[in-house]
């Protein structure tokens, strides 16, 4: 499942090294050198070429929800090395190190907040936490988010960024696909509204579960969106992949997402959609 991990790890460390300490960062889209302060003000979107650089979950939450309205849920859930997984680095150590390094407890942050006055349950994944991989905690937090949206009769929004299932949790990580998808089916049966937002990258196990099950599916531009890793596909078919293969634009063209929306316009677009489904009179405040 986690075919993307290796190649993305490289990107990740580069970003991590540059972002907090340096003042400048190189755009993965145009190669231009960007001033970090300016980039942050622009929601990590390149000023020169509109490339959407990865964004941490806190920044993403802040971008979407009304100021001060976010209440985090299940903040203290932590993964455990229940298989005593033998890798180059022990999973238990990787967890401890990652938590320290990226200052997050897991690869998804969930909570309740207001979007233009609409109360919603929101979950935002963070690629910097072990490639946004889905283990038991991610699966459980998504499940509880769905349950919360169900019991409060409010919409659910999940922003995905993931290389797939977390293999250090073995089959239990695969079963998070089942857990989340099954809960979403129940939510949908009860009339719940679920909006799925795909960011760079959304792949493998996360894509083959809750990411692709939105009533509305929105992608950010030029994100990598696919099931199998490009390298694996290249190996299988023995030919080069066409330009733009497994991009947001590719998935839109083939009919599997509803629209591509610039990050800067995401909140406004969500508001329009919530207006349609819920209606302006249900807003808490605007």
């Amino acid at each position: 499942m986690s075919w993307f991990k290796r190649s993305n790890d490289g990107l990740l460390t580069k970003e991590r090294r540059d972002f907090p300490k340096g003042l400048w960062v190189k755009c993965e889209g145009c190669g231009g050198i960007l001033y970090i302060k300016e980039l942050k003000r622009n929601f990590n979107v390149c000023i020169k070429c509109n490339y959407h650089l990865k964004m941490g979950c806190d920044d993403y939450v802040n971008m979407l929800v009304d100021d001060g309205s976010f209440i985090q849920t299940d903040a203290n859930m932590r993964s455990i090395d229940f298989l005593n997984f033998k890798g180059k680095e022990k999973y238990s150590e990787k967890l401890v190190n990652t938590i320290k390094k990226v200052n997050l407890n897991e690869a998804i942050k969930t909570g309740i907040g207001l979007i233009s006055g609409y109360k919603v349950v929101i979950g935002v994944m963070d690629f910097s936490f072990i490639g946004g991989s889905m283990g038991s905690v991610v699966g459980e937090k998504v499940k509880r988010s769905i349950e919360r949206a169900m019991s409060e009769h409010i919409p659910l929004i999940i922003v995905s960024a993931s290389g797939g299932a977390r293999m250090m949790e073995g089959l239990a990580s695969l079963m998070q696909m089942a857990k989340t998808s099954i809960k979403l089916a129940e939510f949908s049966r009860d009339g719940g509204l679920y909006i799925s937002i795909l960011t760079n990258p959304t792949t493998a196990g996360v894509m083959a579960s809750y990411a692709m099950l939105g009533d509305i599916i929105i992608a950010e531009p030029e994100a990598l969106i696919g099931f199998a890793g490009p390298r694996v596909i290249k190996q299988t078919i023995g030919e080069k992949l066409p330009e733009g293969f497994q991009s947001s634009e590719f998935v839109l063209e083939h009919g599997f997402v509803d629209m591509i929306v610039n990050r800067k316009e995401m909140k406004e677009k969500l508001t329009e959609i919530l207006d349609f489904f819920i209606g302006g009179h249900n807003r808490v405040k605007r």
């Binding site: 998808s181 083959a208 696919g226 099931f227 596909i233 590719f250």
Partner: peptide
């Protein structure tokens, strides 16, 4: 893991 498989979105089919 093939080209057509991604074009016709195997991830959606599984989900």
């Amino acid at each position: 893991p093939g080209k057509g498989s991604e074009e016709r979105c195997v991830a959606e089919a599984i989900a």
